[in-house]
Simulated scan of single mutants.
Amino acid sequence: MDSLHVRLMREGDLVSAERASALTFFDAEQSTRRVSDPEAEPRSAGASKQWIDRMRFFLSVDPGGCWVAVKEEAGEGGVVGFAVSQNRGDLWFLATYGVLPGHQARGVGKRLMDAALGHADGRPGIFSSSVHAGATRRYRLAGFSLHPQIRMVGTVDRSTLPAVHGLREGRADDFEWMDTLDQDLRVAGHGPDHGYMLGTMRLVVLRNRTRPGYVYIDDQGRASLLAAAHPATARKLLWEALASSRGSTLVNCITTPNEWAIDVGLAARLDIGQEGYIAVRGMPVPAPYLAGGHFL
């Protein structure tokens, strides 16, 4: 008898799910590491807490998209796989997904993905994918187009930073126009996600009637999510994030329609590399836009 059960996530699953996530992604980083890449490091205690906090937020907003695979005899402490997805208006996104290495290639991932995709109910979808062969095969079979992502890493040459004008700190009363911009770029607004992100990151905006844009900058000074109505605005926002960086930084989730970000990164003397895919179904790749972590 199959002792593995796929069911909706509960709050009591969060600690076990985080452990499964940390182990799964650490193993993936080790197995796909290139010679030029830094050594993979276990997730820090702070990052673990942040993961749990974010998944708790998703559970509170749209619990029907949050699934776990558990060993029945282990109860809530036996999470071996997870798929956390969310609906925002007419858009579905996959925040995170994984199966412990010892349980891969047994159909667990397919069951979790089927559950998460069932929650989409035909909506267009988007997520950021690793290069894991089994996972990418499953995404393609589910009808997603896989668009290679570029990442840029390194320490910003501060002599290259231009003077940037017109930006200001963002506020909650910016969310309405930000959601309108989101709808133009990615089918639907981020809705309640903006409130969560504003509580955990710095928001910088350019409020312009024809060329608005915004960027969330994390506690390490990295652009975590960027959306703009025009590449010129996007470049200003990315330069602001790079000016906020401390030591080595990262610009991630750069797709071909967003080559403006490559130009900025090269001007700042960052190194270029390839990292995973942006997967989309029923929608184009957003641009000018840099998808952000769990919030896409």
Rank of each mutant, 00 (worst) to 15 (best):
M1P: 08
R7G: 02
L8M: 06
V15S: 03
S16M: 03
S16V: 11
A17S: 11
E18S: 07
A22W: 10
L23V: 12
T24W: 13
F25P: 01
A28I: 09
E29D: 10
Q30W: 05
R33D: 00
R33F: 00
V35T: 11
D37S: 12
A40P: 13
R43M: 05
K49V: 02
K49L: 13
D53Y: 11
R54W: 14
R56L: 04
R56V: 10
F58R: 02
P63A: 12
G64Y: 05
G65L: 15
W67M: 07
V68G: 02
K71C: 15
A74M: 06
E76L: 15
G78A: 08
V84W: 08
Q86L: 14
Q86W: 02
L91D: 12
F93Q: 04
L94E: 06
Y97L: 03
Y97K: 03
G102E: 15
G102F: 10
H103T: 05
G107C: 00
R111P: 14
R111H: 05
L112S: 01
D114Q: 08
A116N: 00
G118Q: 12
A120K: 09
G122S: 05
G122K: 10
R123S: 05
P124L: 06
S128L: 10
S129Q: 03
S129T: 15
T136Q: 14
R137C: 09
Y139A: 01
G143E: 07
G143L: 06
G143R: 06
F144E: 04
F144T: 04
H147A: 01
H147S: 12
Q149L: 06
I150Y: 11
R158M: 01
R158S: 13
L161F: 08
P162M: 09
V164C: 09
H165I: 15
H165A: 12
G166Y: 02
L167E: 10
R168P: 07
F175K: 14
M178T: 04
D179R: 09
T180F: 14
D184F: 07
R186E: 10
A188N: 03
G189K: 15
G189Y: 11
G195S: 07
G195D: 13
T210N: 03
P212V: 14
D219K: 03
Q220N: 14
G221S: 01
A227W: 00
A229R: 01
H230M: 02
A232R: 14
A232I: 10
T233D: 03
T233S: 06
R235H: 07
K236W: 05
L237Y: 14
W239Q: 08
W239L: 05
A243V: 05
R246C: 02
R246L: 04
G247W: 04
T249L: 10
V251D: 02
C253H: 08
C253L: 12
W260C: 12
I262K: 13
G265Y: 01
L266E: 12
L266N: 14
L266W: 03
R269E: 07
R269Q: 09
I272R: 04
Q274H: 12
I278R: 09
A279G: 05
A279N: 04
G282W: 11
G282N: 13
M283I: 08
A287C: 09
G292L: 03
G293N: 08
H294M: 13
F295L: 11
F295S: 06
